[in-house]
Design a protein around this nucleic acid. Structure first.
Lengths: 144, 144
DNA sequence: TTATCTGCAAACCGTTTGCAAAGTT
DNA sequence: AACTTTGCAAACGGTTTGCAGATAA
């Protein structure tokens, strides 16, 4: 994770912020604030900051979303999830009975964003997409 | 709203449930539980139930989602939103600066659901999609 | 009559905020 | 030194739960 990186956004370069960025850089999927916090404490990412509190993590995440470094979306249960803006993202098929999820290959929205941006004048920076349904096993034992 | 409708799902047909269903049937967009509650009290829908409590609304919504009558998604801020499963849904382009939103014409996922269902064996029942960006006005005065 | 449903109040959990101390530039 | 950021603890808002009385079948 580049340091000096934060300054360009008018932010002070503190170990806590570095740690949050590193955790998100290593994450494979969007993370909830609490999960980011746990990973920072566990020392994931190379920064060795283990002395932070949850509210600081929240404040950092909020700040970074405002500056455009992170994207914030929401999961099926309403939890807020954060990811680096440029990280490779995935979409998932989520079983509404057990919550199990299967990643969808590719992103079906790439073309759409462009054409929609052109049509509306919006500068589109991201999106949130999940599909819900019953997984094969659950679909059989249906009929509740 | 058909009565007798609920019985088929093994549910008792109570005025509270009727009222919740009616509110959702008249709604133009997905509603949060609190909003459903307010509308029930206000007597929207034809059912005249004004004597209910918020936890009952939550329980009703949860039950109806489990039975497959409703879909539950989540908004940009993580609030949980409910809608009738078969109601016409819309997607929105949301300005990340002010939260203003513009509806997207049509649903870009109709084809996708079918093919994905066939490929994975999931019985796909719904989805959640939002696009984020800066609206034309904000995109100009950028450079934070 | 029996099992389900409801209202109330309290618990719960994720998120936000006030404040004084610590850190960055 | 000036201003930003942090830790702590308390507040907050939406959601869930336990229980006893009411209601649908």
């Amino acid at each position: 994770m580049e340091s000096g990186f934060l300054k360009e956004y008018g932010l002070k370069n503190t170990p806590g912020r570095q740690a949050v960025l590193e955790v998100l850089a290593h994450a494979q999927e969007p993370l909830a604030a609490g999960e980011v916090y746990r990973r920072v404490l566990a020392g994931e990412g190379t920064e060795k900051n283990r002395r932070t509190c949850l509210s600081t993590v929240y404040r950092t995440l909020t700040t970074l979303v405002e500056k455009g470094l992170l994207l914030r979306g929401s999961g099926q249960d309403g939890s807020l999830l954060y990811q680096l803006r440029d990280s490779r993202h995935r979409h998932y098929l989520i079983c509404t009975r057990f919550g199990s999820s299967v990643p969808i290959p590719g992103c079906p929205l790439e073309g759409l964003e462009q054409s929609l941006g052109a049509k509306t004048g919006f500068a589109i920076t991201g999106h949130n997409l999940e599909l819900y349904g019953l997984c094969p096993q659950c679909a059989k034992g249906d009929k509740a």
